[in-house]
Amino acid sequence: MGADHGRVRGSYDTVAEEYLGRIGGELAHKPVDRALLRVVVEEAAGGPVADLGCGPGHVAGWLAEQGARVVGIDLSPRMVELARRERPGAVFRAGDLLALPAADGEFAAAVALYSVIHLEPAELTPAFAEMRRVLRPGGVLLVSFHLGSEVRRMEEWWGHPVDVDFHFLEADTVAAHLTGAGFTVEARLERESLPEEAATRRGYLLARRPR
């Protein structure tokens, strides 16, 4: 694991409690995200779903409320600790997107919401290949990200000292990396930010591991 992943881990450990307080209820005002997540639940058809970059477990919890069997995975041990505290009936694991703590074909579907934005460009295809590995043939993956081409370095976040980069990504670039990792991209969607969100345009891709 590279040094940059250590920076990301430490930064999210630092803001974990505040992140939970500020972001933990975000799906309540995100109808598009909820609709896409329902697609994932339907596609999983009762099989296990991975929440990759699960943070404090709020998306995993919402998926579980829809009847999904969810496993949340996050780089930050503190985030995993909070997720286990908030969702004691769910399963959470600490792990890196480049080396997921999961068996081959363990999941029927997966979501990676704003987690690949912390990867370096050269890490995208290997990360997606790892996601493909843990998906069953025919399994779907929902990826979301901030649209653009800039890299924002944050050294302060909600008053806490951090050291983390946010990579904005073009939809075509993410689609190309998914294809390069063996996925078939089936749907894409873009939307403007909501009043409750940071002012960035958002992108979503739904991809499938071929059977």
Rank of each mutant, 00 (worst) to 15 (best):
M1D: 11
G2C: 03
A3K: 10
A3Y: 01
D4M: 11
E18A: 15
E18R: 15
E18Y: 04
Y19C: 12
L20H: 14
G24W: 03
K30N: 09
P31C: 07
R38E: 15
V39L: 04
V40T: 04
V41F: 01
E43A: 05
A45L: 06
G46I: 03
G46K: 06
G53S: 11
P56G: 12
E65N: 08
A68R: 13
G72M: 10
D74V: 07
D74P: 05
S76Y: 05
P77I: 07
E81N: 05
L82E: 03
L82T: 02
P88A: 13
P88K: 12
P88T: 08
V91P: 02
F92G: 09
D96W: 00
D104T: 15
E106C: 06
A110E: 01
V111S: 10
V111K: 05
Y114M: 10
I117R: 01
I117E: 07
L119N: 05
E120K: 11
A129C: 03
A129R: 15
M131K: 01
R133K: 10
V134F: 04
L141K: 00
V143L: 05
S144H: 00
S144Y: 01
H146P: 02
M154S: 11
H160Y: 09
D163L: 11
D163V: 02
E170N: 03
A176E: 15
H177D: 13
G182D: 13
E186G: 11
A187V: 03
R188Q: 14
E192N: 11
S193G: 06
E197D: 08
A198P: 02
A199T: 10
R201T: 09
R202E: 13
L205A: 10
L205V: 05
R209W: 00
R209Q: 09
P210A: 11
